[in-house]
Design a protein around this nucleic acid. Structure first.
Lengths: 109, 109
DNA sequence: TTATTATATAAGCAATTACTTATGTATACA
DNA sequence: TGTATACATAAGTAATTGCTTATATAATAA
């Protein structure tokens, strides 16, 4: 892997918000509107983070109806490193389970 | 490890110049003036990169005479991840051996 | 002692980043 | 057919980054 590519990959991960997004995605695929709830951030802010992660090759998107479902790209050249890092991080306080409990979880399946 | 700490650690690595510095340091300890030759950059630019790496806990410094010898901190919580990353990167074109050949290598030992 | 060398650090500046608000588009639903 | 929902994207802005030049300090060499 060349220096510029690793730089782009690592820069995309080197942000607390995006680390949280990736931590959530390591458990299940989610859409933008769910992240706005989980992270209490605006929709454009989340979309821009997803764009950055996509440009670095970390995530895949799949349009389904109104929603765009985002998931981790397991074929990324540094996927192993990413999972090592994510397992070192604590579970976020706000859980997807709490979304379900509040009826805010979208049916992405 | 908490999110903020991992963010700082990864941000410090997410830079082509600092990735090169760490790649060189994975082979041997070096001082600022050698990096200015290896990377063809100004001394303040190198010093500022080293400061950033030090703040993130990636490097140790040891004053020896006029020089400050910099080395990797193997006790960093993500040292294993770092070495995995560094081994994926190609050797830099400018080698420490070429410094020696030109008589520009300082005796840091 | 004086000059040189190795380094740190401050101030200034252009580029980048991460948000905001505003707006456009496509899908689903009444 | 409208209307609401999910999302992308553009423009604007404050904060951060990575260089530059200038300068200070400490150790060595002449």
């Amino acid at each position: 892997m060349d220096y510029k590519q690793m730089e782009q990959s690592l820069k995309a991960v080197s942000d607390e918000t995006r680390m949280l997004i990736l931590k959530y995605l390591s458990k299940e695929a989610l859409c933008i509107c769910e992240f706005t709830e989980l992270l209490d951030m605006s929709q454009p802010a989340i979309s821009q983070h997803m764009r950055k992660l996509k440009q670095a090759g970390w995530v895949c998107e799949e349009k389904r109806g109104r929603w765009t479902i985002w998931s981790l790209n397991e074929k990324h050249g540094l996927f192993g490193v990413l999972t090592t890092l994510l397992t070192m991080l604590p579970e976020p306080e706000r859980t997807v389970a709490s979304l379900v409990a509040e009826g805010k979880k979208v049916d992405c399946s």
